[in-house]
Design a protein around this nucleic acid. Sequence first.
DNA 1: GTTACTTTGTTTGTCTAGTAAACAAAGAAA
DNA 2: TTTCTTTGTTTACTAGACAAACAAAGTAAC
Lengths: 396, 396
Amino acid sequence: MKITGDHQLIKKINKYLVLDTIRRQFPISRADISARTGLNKATVSALVNELIESSFASETGLGESSGGRKPVMLLFNERAGFAIGVDLGVNYMLAMITDLSGAVVKKKRIDIAELEAGALTDKLKKTIRGLMPHVPASPYGVIGIGIGVPGLVDDQGSVLSAPNLGWTDVPLQSILAEEFGVDVVIDNEANAGALGEKEFGAGRDVSNLLYISVGMGIGAGIILNDTLYRGFSGFSGEVGHMALAQDGPLCGCGNRGCWETFASEKALLVNARAAYDDAADADAAAPNLDTLLSLARQGDPEARRLFADTGRWLGTGIANLVNVFNPELIVIGNRMSLASAWIGEAVYETLDSRSLAFHRSRASVAYSQLGHSSAALGAASMAIQRFFSTMKATWE
Amino acid sequence: MKITGDHQLIKKINKYLVLDTIRRQFPISRADISARTGLNKATVSALVNELIESSFASETGLGESSGGRKPVMLLFNERAGFAIGVDLGVNYMLAMITDLSGAVVKKKRIDIAELEAGALTDKLKKTIRGLMPHVPASPYGVIGIGIGVPGLVDDQGSVLSAPNLGWTDVPLQSILAEEFGVDVVIDNEANAGALGEKEFGAGRDVSNLLYISVGMGIGAGIILNDTLYRGFSGFSGEVGHMALAQDGPLCGCGNRGCWETFASEKALLVNARAAYDDAADADAAAPNLDTLLSLARQGDPEARRLFADTGRWLGTGIANLVNVFNPELIVIGNRMSLASAWIGEAVYETLDSRSLAFHRSRASVAYSQLGHSSAALGAASMAIQRFFSTMKATWE
DNA sequence: GTTACTTTGTTTGTCTAGTAAACAAAGAAA
DNA sequence: TTTCTTTGTTTACTAGACAAACAAAGTAAC
């Protein structure tokens, strides 16, 4: 059945509008909400009172008068409930408790060795269970759990395929929902990161942005018209397998010339190994991203060159995406954003020379503002979004 | 000011819902509309009567009884107004009058030699003026004009850049709006084509589709969640300048390896010239698409090979787009769709081997169902959409 | 200090547009 | 015939937004 308009719909729209206004603009008075939204003062008063009753908002003291009666200032009650967000990486797991505004209450980072689905989901459960006692008392308690996973996730929250974890068909959503009895949202790690940056990071006030997650692989979270674009079956954003050359290195996907064989952390490490082998370096262990970063920081020309190469390839792929999407902002996230100082110029120059003039002049590039936390924050924010939208649906 | 819910909003939503239901499902009875939309019978009756009064719907005879009183069947009045759609090609101009359902009333195709902006806009005006007398009498008359242009169009309807026409900064929207005094919509030709196929062609009932316009250049119209995605500044879909090789042929945009240097009509003709020169063929004139098509039809192996090559390159680029967008459908349109018989297999095989398994199994490829008319029909449909949405806005 | 003007938030009454239920008209089936 | 269905209209009711009036609480001018 299609959506029809009835009185409840009006009220839902307006109540949500008022809540959203408080959430983004607090402290704010009833009169101000009325002015900003265009709703009648009486309507705003009634709705605000309902929101206070359901503990989403609260009154604080009086504000400054602007020549008349002092306004009663309203606050958004960020601590009416708490979300749990988890970024499931390939060699780590970052789990956090946030309040409804995305402020982190408690954070836990764990290294991962065993990737097998059963063992890892057990560890995930244990980690989440370990956080539970730290959730502060609140009217709504834990309102949901969001998980970002490095792989393809269907709309049922099943992980269909996560090559870097070796997972196939893991029904993570139902596993966790059963365990914890709250709403659970599972999504791709790049989608989570995109949402995190959009809500709390570099992408605030931007409606069309691409979040490029450059880790061992490359994925993208695509936000168009303020909403995550998930594709027909939920698998959009596999930009790492965009072919940039017809006869490049062999990729795990079976093809040659995929972007991630040139510009990912994995590609960087492969090139680094070759470079430092050639140089007959004394380095005993194979270099990893951290050692390369510190080498670059010390001015090592080989490391600098490796990063510049990576930057150029990143720029090349980003130029393609800019031409296709004409986004307002590109955010480079995940581990490679740590190297922004060494790849930045190369990215910018390549993008500048390879994208169309009209597009180039309007798209800007930024690096993750949330560092390691984008995906976990984004996952939490998915849970929060879900909570508010079911909340809105139950209002009458 | 944000959108607030008031009573008018409800009514607009519901009235439009009823109109849309009639438009897509007619002939239909009031009772059936009520059942399908979930609206109360009384509500439907009232809204239907208003629609009849404003001549968008009309009653026809009685329908078949299903065991009770016979229903009064309602029709959508497609001929309440007419739209004009124009596809401005590089060497032709196709203009048509359609009714509100997109049925073509009158069609006119003109060859173009002079591309200079002033001369061509004059010719465009003249063509449209020539169609006017053929618009049937109707309550709303000409409800709008839509134009598809091979270039970048901003949201004011100015053609910022159309390399193949040699245009820069032509304020086409205001020129035509002033001339004809009706709503004028200007958009990219690929966007128009995408909309045409979605409304009337291969893409009906599909929510996420890419229309790849393969002519002298390559562009894409991107429809996501049933709406045209235009990008941050309206320049999305420049897929022709996606780099597929780092050292390919030089492209007009200044780069190397752009998709359109491999898979466009222009690329095909360049390759053909080389091939037939090599073969010391007796062909006096340089081959064009039509001659190549008839050669292929006659079984000429060289022509067949040229088309297969084009098909492979098309498949390569489409695979990239499939990985990025995870669309439900790809429609190949514009001139190259004429060659579907000779490129089809190569496209399919390449796409199959180069896109990710999960995506491949869910995306299908089709060729323009509307032939030459997709862009003109799409342009008309833009005007119709605009008409209904302003209509909706003025309802109270 | 008094008076006049502002601003805030509530109260009251009105209006719009939806729904439910009853009903008349018209037909099908027993 | 009688009974049951189905359609579309009429009637009464209701939710919820809005406008306007008002009380409360301030500021500013004289």
